[in-house]
Structure formats: C-alpha cells, structure tokens
Design a protein around this nucleic acid. Structure first.
Length: 153
DNA sequence: GCCAACGTTGGC
DNA sequence: GCCAACGTTGGC
C-alpha cells in the first residue's frame, strides 16, 4: 500500500465534488512527475490525502482512494478542453490518469500551517517551499498521523 | 495581485 | 544539449 497527497482547487473540483460524484477521473495533470506517479506507482486501493490549494486556509480536508488502473486522460484529445494537448495522439497518449474514489471528509481539517509548524512533518514534501507538485508520495507515518488529526473532535 | 520557485519550450 | 524566456503554481 502506497500513500499519496493529491492537490485540488475547490473552485475547480473539491472534496465536496468528489463526495457528490463518488468517483472521478483525475483529469488535467500536466506534469510528468505527477503523471509518472499515477501511471507507474499508484495501485487500486492506495489512499490519498485530499489537499485544497488556493484557498484561505490551504490544507488536508479528507481522504480519497485510487479506484482504477491508469488509462489515458480523455481531456488531452478534446480541443475544447483546457487540458487539450495538440501533441498527444490516440496511438501515443502523453497523459495517463487514475480514477479517484471518495473515502471520507475530515471532521477537522489539517491546515498546511499546522504541518509546517510541526517537526514531525519537517521532511514531508508538501511543507517544502516552492513545492508545486500536484501529486506527491506520502510516508505511512505522515499519512496516519494526518488522518488521526483529521478525525479528532 | 504579488512574486518566488519551478517546469517547459525552443532557438542556437 | 545548453540556457534564456516564458508560463504556471500556489502561498502569502
């Protein structure tokens, strides 16, 4: 079992949207490293911290789960999509994604600020300045601690 | 809306 | 294959 952190902007697609949909193809990732994580390392059942960015209080708001094997991101072939990639072909698609399933919404969101202020999370990627990667691997201890904090009342 | 950090592009 | 220019991300 691998653990992950996936970022989203709630104005685009937030945890509430995933909860409503139940499952969602994780479209629009256009960074090779993030793609490689989805394509090469994610497994069905892997759990991911669901992170909200570009909001007043950025942080982890819940949990999602990898729900499919990797497959080509359909938005790369759609000229009307923001994520259209003219250089990608059906024969050799550039961008792969997985489906994400809703698992839980935290009763208590875990803000980025809290992680930054805690030495336990010092080597977590998301606290590093300038870290923009939208899909990041997370260690089991970090995942479990954040989930425990998210569930506290 | 500023801006630092970072990834990508394309000319050479 | 170098690297400057450019675009994007995302916290602040």
């Amino acid at each position: 079992m691998n653990y992950w952190l996936i970022k989203s902007e709630p104005s685009e697609f937030g945890l509430a949207d995933l909860e409503r949909q139940g499952s969602e193809p994780w479209t629009g990732v256009r960074n090779y490293q993030a793609r490689n994580y989805m394509r090469d390392q994610m497994r069905i059942g892997d759990l991911a911290l669901f992170y909200h960015s570009s909001v007043t209080v950025p942080g982890v708001v819940g949990i999602a789960q990898v729900g499919s094997a990797p497959y080509p991101d359909p938005t790369q072939f759609d000229p009307k999509s923001d994520y259209y990639d003219a250089k990608s072909t059906l024969e050799a698609p550039r961008w792969q994604l997985v489906d994400m399933h809703f698992v839980e919404r935290f009763v208590c969101e875990v803000p980025l600020e809290e992680l930054k202020g805690d030495p336990f999370f010092a080597d977590m990627l998301v606290v590093k300045p300038g870290m923009r990667l939208s899909i990041q691997p997370v260690s089991a201890p970090h995942f479990l601690e954040i989930r425990a904090r998210g569930r506290r009342l």
